[in-house]
Design a binder for these strands. Structure first.
Length: 593
RNA sequence: GGUUCCGUAGCUCAGUUGGAUAGAGCAACAGCCUUCUAAGCUGUGGGUCACGCGUUCGAGCCGCGUCGGAAUCACCA
């Protein structure tokens, strides 16, 4: 039973003894704020109607009843209408023993629910950038958090591997590529393909400009530029699976995947299922048929299929082109249907930027109108854009922050910083690299994950690379320190793996135990809110609490053996919980740094 | 114009279900390395939670409105 449940039971019992039956959820119990004395607090205002007494008198009455009847509650105090209850030190000691013994501490019991989370979803025409990093980190972290909450999680990646944008880089490579390959140039495959995507745009613009000089309007010129017409022809050839085009497509996508794999690995993300749009883009047409039959959709004179959502405050939406080909929405209807059917999903989460809020609003509404109950179990985990100090990232202005470059920068800075501080002097080159990678990536990941997903965030390179304060490296540093203490204890042959002593804890130690005890609820709250930021805040608080404790108490030099053991055990648990909460953020934690 | 989201300290951001005197970090200033890692610790200053009205015993959080910002409203994905 969790502490919250225990307190809740105790409070209900006393309140009911005094005032008669009370409906569940009527009483508000919360953790006591730091500035007040006590562990848990009952807000008595909702009870005043029943007690017919002042807030203070009511609180006192309940407090007295609880303290006299429950051994674990040591004392209480009343401030205004708030009843603060203090648990006994022996209660916390027992609680600590329990969690230290629990191998799966923080891992919730299996819920039996299966949740698919789709994230990343890259286009295969250019390398990943900062925006993708936010997406990948969020998706991976939320998946970890949902797992810790006992759900079965399927991580899915839907690769946008077809379409006109892919043909653009293919065409440009064919014309201007001189047979370049990742091997011949030493370039990462995704960067090489991206280079030709840019190359296409350059030529396209030049052609448009020329046509406009010849008197065409901008609109005409954009439609008539030979190179874009050729790209469109190429797309048709691809759809007809013409060997030359199809083969080139496979080759170039292969390069991109090799490149993406490197980036994914550096980010520490992975997938259980990879879907390719080239294999799913025809899905959804049967759903369109179904909608027509049910009268939810309608066909226009030109043959295209639409749904009218104006009554719901939205617009009319195209679902099938007049030539019978599908659009984005058609595909998403189809893939959502297939996923729920094939995997017996309870929930489907899409990690997609907020520029697609409208799309998902429509998607859910259409499915609902078709009568699919599971439409309510689709969640769009919408996240805000990442902006730079100079403003938005614009590929045209070359202000896009490339994912690989950024990763390399972070790791390099971590290394420089470590060298400067002399932290890694007695490490092998290999160890030093591994640690610098963990720290650099930890800084990047924490910096991005600590902000609420739905908010537009500012990415200031200077600040992200700061390793002081509320940062990943601060938390990693705390962990490294604890590991160092444990190493020294081992060298000194101090035993600390026995049972926890039933000795008096200091207030600072109880604070630490309380924080450790909070871990499961922090994870649960983060899961309910799809907010890795909440786990991050918890880990930071815990690390801070430890650092305060670290300064005020010598852990190894305590003379009483039982106290020393108790402290070492406590500190060991802190390290363990830091490790697991950072794992929920996909952040590795070094043992020294 | 419609829809959705955001607005909290100079800056970047926290603030699970409405609860007490709104919190961190950065930046600024003042201390602390003879002590288990100073990527650290302690302290000081800094706020009309955009604004107004409402609901409530109680609002940063809920409702309505106003202002400011973002996204979106394609036979693109």
């Amino acid at each position: 039973m969790s502490i919250e449940d225990f307190i809740s039971k105790v409070v209900y019992r006393s309140a009911e003894a005094l005032y008669g039956a009370i409906e569940e959820g009527q009483l508000q119990i919360q953790k006591t704020r730091k500035e007040f004395e006590g562990d848990y607090t009952l807000v008595t205002f909702p009870l005043l109607r029943r007690s017919r007494k002042s807030p203070e008198a009511t609180a006192t009455e309940i407090g007295e009843h609880i303290v006299s009847s429950v051994a674990e509650i040591e004392s209480f105090n009343v401030i205004k209408g708030f009843l603060n209850l203090t648990l006994s030190a022996s209660f916390w000691a027992a609680r600590f023993t329990e969690m230290a013994a629990d191998v799966h501490y923080g891992q919730a019991a299996a819920t039996g629910r299966t949740i698919m989370i789709e994230y990343s979803s890259p286009n295969t025409n250019k390398p990943l950038h900062l925006g993708h990093i936010r997406n990948n980190l969020l998706g991976y972290s939320v998946a970890q958090i949902l797992k810790a909450n006992g759900h079965k999680v399927i991580k899915a990646n839907l690769v946008n591997d077809r379409g006109i944008h892919i043909c653009k880089s293919m065409l440009a490579w064919q014309r201007f590529g001189h047979g370049e390959t990742p091997a011949s140039t030493g370039m990462k495959g995704d960067h090489l393909v991206g280079k030709y995507y840019v190359e296409f745009d350059k030529h396209y613009k030049a052609e448009v400009k020329e046509l406009m000089a010849q008197g065409q309007s901008e609109e005409e010129a954009k439609k008539n530029a030979p190179i874009i017409c050729d790209a469109q022809a190429m797309l048709r050839q691809w759809e007809a699976k013409e060997p030359a085009v199809y083969g080139l497509w496979q080759t170039m996508n292969g390069w991109v995947y090799e490149g993406f794999d490197v980036t994914y690995k550096a980010l520490g993300v992975d997938f259980d299922k990879v879907y390719y749009e080239s294999q799913t883009y025809l899905l959804g047409k049967s759903i369109v048929e179904e909608g027509l039959q049910k009268g939810v959709f309608y066909r226009r004179d030109d043959g295209s299929v639409w749904i009218d959502l104006t009554a719901d405050g939205l617009d009319e939406k195209l679902l099938l082109r007049n030539d019978g080909t599908s659009v984005y929405m058609t595909q998403d209807l189809g893939t959502a249907f297939r996923r729920f059917e094939d995997n017996k999903l309870d929930d489907l989460i899409y990690v997609v930027g907020n520029e697609q809020n409208y799309h998902f609003q429509v998607l859910k509404l259409v499915l609902k109108k078709l009568g699919y109950a599971w439409s309510d179990h689709i969640t769009h985990l919408s996240y805000g854009m990442v902006e730079l100090p100079e403003g938005k990232m614009k590929s045209r202005e070359g202000t896009v922050v490339d994912a690989d470059d950024l990763i390399a920068d972070m790791v390099r800075t971590a290394r420089e910083m470590s060298d400067e501080l002399g932290k890694l002097n007695d490490c092998s080159e290999q160890e030093a690299n591994a640690i610098s990678t963990m720290v650099g990536m930890g800084a990047l990941k924490y910096f991005i994950l600590k902000v609420d997903p739905k908010k537009t965030m500012l990415f200031d390179p200077r600040e992200s690379i700061d390793f002081n304060g509320n940062t990943g490296p601060f938390i990693q540093y705390t962990h490294a320190r604890i590991c160092s203490i444990l190493r020294k204890a081992q060298q000194a042959d101090v035993e600390f793996d026995g049972s926890v002593m039933a000795i008096a804890y200091l207030p600072e130690e109880i604070e630490l135990v309380k924080m450790l005890a909070d871990y499961p609820s922090a994870v649960a709250a983060a899961g309910a809110n799809f907010a890795p930021s909440m786990v991050g805040a918890y880990a930071y608080e815990l690390a801070k609490q430890f650092n305060g404790y670290y300064h005020d108490h010598s852990i190894l030099k305590e003379e009483r053996a039982d106290v020393r053991r108790m402290r070492l055990q406590l500190v060991q648990q802190v390290a363990r919980v830091i490790r697991s909460s950072m794992a929920l953020l996909g952040i590795e934690v070094p043992e020294r740094m």
